[in-house]
Every structure is written in C-alpha cells, then in structure tokens.
Design a protein around this nucleic acid. Structure first.
Lengths: 198, 198
DNA sequence: GCGAGTAGTAAGCAGCTGCTTACTTGTCGT
DNA sequence: ACGACAAGTAAGCAGCTGCTTACTACTCGC
C-alpha cells in the first residue's frame, strides 16, 4: 500500500475493471441498487467514474455483471442433499464485503429494481425452488419448495439486511438447526399431506 | 362521480389530506418509498403537490403518517391465539390498494429507507416477535419467534412483492395451513430442544 | 359587502442522478 | 523516436428529485 500509483500503476484496464466490480458488489450489498450511485462505486474503486461507463455501459449492466459474476457460485458444486444447507449458509453469511456470497443480500436490498426482482424470483429463486422440490414427493411439492425458499430469503432479510436481534446475533449453526428441522417437515418423503391438495 | 369539482369541491382540507394519505399508501405499497415521487402521490390524489408539504412537511413524514395510520390495525384486536394466523393473513392479503392491510407490503418494499427498516425491525417486528415468543417455553423462545416472523415476512415478500409462482397463486388457506403446521413445531409448548441453547 | 385568513396554485430552485463529451496522457508496435 | 490507439480525466448536460416561494381566489365572520 501507499505506493505512488498516481503515475505508476495507471494503465491497467483489467485491474480497473476488477476494482469497479468489487466496489460495486460491496456497495450494492450494503445499500442496494437504488441507494448506490455510480460516483460512490467509482470513488470506492479509486477510479474515474467515466470509466464505469466505458467498461460496463450503464449502472444496470454493471449490476447485472456483478450478479451474474457472483451468483454462479451459489448454484454449483456440492451434493444435492446439501443444497438446503448451502443456500442457508450463503444467506446467513454475516459479514458483507468479504467475498462473493453477498449477492443474495444485494438482491434482497434491491428488488425495487425490476431486473433484480426478476433475477431473485425467476433465475435464482426458480433454480433453488426446483431443486428443493425434489426433496419431497408431495403433490404440491413446488409450493412447499417456495415456502422453504421464502423462509430462507426471509431469514436472510431479517438477519443480514434488517439485522434484527436476537436473530442477527444467533450462531449460524443454531439457526440452521432450527430451520432444517422445520424444513424437513415440509419436504419429507411420503409426506402425510394435511388433506388439502389442489 | 364526474361532478364539476374543478371549482365546486375545492376548499375541503380534510378531503385533501385523506386523498393524499390514500394515494401515498397505495403508491408506497406498489413501488416502495424510494421509487415513489411526491409528484406521483399528488397526481394520484388529484391535488397540487405543494399541498403535500403544507399538510405533511416532507415525504418522510408523509410516509411515517401512512405507516402509523395503518399499522395500528395490524396489532390490535383478536385473541392472542389467533395472532400468528392474523399476521399471516395480513401478509398474504393479495390485492394491494384495497384498504389498510398493505402496510407490510409498503415496508417490505421500502427497507432501503432507514425509517422503514427501523419500523419493520423494531416496532412492528418487535411487537410481533414478542407476542409470538409467548407461544413456546423453549429457552430460545425469542430466536424461534424471530425465525417464525422471518418466515412470515419472507412469504409476504415472495408472494406480494416478487409474486413468484406457484406461491403467488396458491390459495391463502393452503399457505396458512402449511405454515401453521411448521410453525407449531417451532413454537410448541414443552418443546424438546435439539440440544443447543446458549 | 368586505377584509382577513387560509386552501389552493404555478413556477422555480438547488442538489443530485446517470451518462456523455472533448480532451490529455501513457503504452506499444514499428 | 514516434505515431496511433487505448486508458484515463475533467467538466458538464439534461432530467428528475424533494421542497419553497410568491401569488391567486375562495369562504366566512362581521
């Protein structure tokens, strides 16, 4: 740090792009899409704000890039049985600004933006729900999956966005434990349906 | 309707105030605090936008007034046993713009606003969680209550704000049924704790 | 009828937003 | 060494935001 990058480290387009993406990812997660300005992003990245438009075209496209860049990691890898736990842990990961897991927080803060809402509902939500639905053979499996997903998102919202006590301070394992127990009731095989099924 | 109110029905401050509150309530629920402009509110209320500031001082105060005006109905009335179901139904009430039940939707869309977040977390959330916690005697009753509340809010978000299928289209009773069954697992008396309690 | 006070109006201000443009400066192939 | 092109910069634009101000005109007590 504190190298004289004023005139030295200039002209590094890859680093500039990365810095912008990083800063944008952090700020979108911290404040949401609306509340983040391109000037803030450029400032945190220590980059001239005109470059943001040179590299990404618009604030929306930058947002989309941040999301697609980060959301892949949420869906891939790991065994299917671990999926609920993995979604949960990504939702519960506390400290925003660390790596790439805070995409969900960014989305939960930004669904006033149409694109963010679509992504949360259709792409990410759709993929999660589809996989969760496989855990049960109940006739309304998809609805049950949606309910589970809604829970995960709701917990993420209350914990990471709103930071409500005591939920925000509870150890991750305790929260996961409670949730998984209730979820298994909704998603168990040979589920004895309550009676309603349409 | 269609009376020549241009010059007739003027000079009715009470009606003007009410019209502004109504329009604001609808728009905040439809678009959230950030995405709603004072010009839109005034326009929907068919009122000059300067009057909005005469009557309410600022957009923030108008928002606060809308919320306090509507949120009382959410907490009062009904027996304690019905509380979870009542919260749920207010969260699940589909059509925004009807009466006063869409306060929660407005809040869920607006928590980028600091005041909305505080209200959702501390006042409304706090009151709900406290009451929900009374349903169980588990040592971590408050955490369990938060988890239940997070679920309700999450379901409200997915259903009323994001409108994800099939959750958005599912009959209210079916959703309530599923939720109540899982909730009773978390909030039952003499709950056999999993082992963790801090 | 008439002055007073207030509901209602039109116009506009300062500040911020996303985005652009005209320009300078560094880098690299030749 | 130098010319060309790309990376980086400063300044500014149009549009919108919440909010204000200077004004008109209605209503009501007298």
């Amino acid at each position: 740090m504190c190298e004289d990058r004023q005139s030295r480290r200039r002209r590094d387009p890859a680093a500039t792009r990365t810095a912008l993406l990083r800063a944008a990812g952090e700020l979108f997660a911290e404040r949401g899409f609306d509340q983040t300005t391109v000037r803030e992003v450029a400032s945190r990245a220590e980059v001239n704000q005109a470059l943001l438009f040179r590299y990404f075209g618009s604030k929306q496209e930058l947002f989309a890039e941040v999301l697609s860049h980060n959301s892949e990691a949420l869906l891939d890898g790991g065994s299917p049985e671990e999926l609920p736990r993995r979604i949960l842990e990504s939702v519960l990961s506390e400290h925003v600004g660390a790596g790439t897991e805070h995409t969900l927080v960014a989305l939960l803060r930004s669904f006033s933006d149409e694109r963010a809402a679509r992504l949360l509902r259709d792409e990410l939500g759709g993929a999660y729900a589809e996989r969760l639905a496989r855990f049960t053979d109940a006739p309304d499996a998809e609805l049950r999956a949606d309910l589970v997903l809604a829970w995960f998102f709701g917990v993420g919202m209350m914990r990471s966005v709103l930071r409500k006590s005591p939920l925000a301070e509870a150890p991750t394992e305790v929260v996961v434990d409670h949730l998984m127990r209730a979820v298994s009731l909704l998603l168990e095989k040979n589920s004895p349906t309550g009676g309603d099924e349409d």
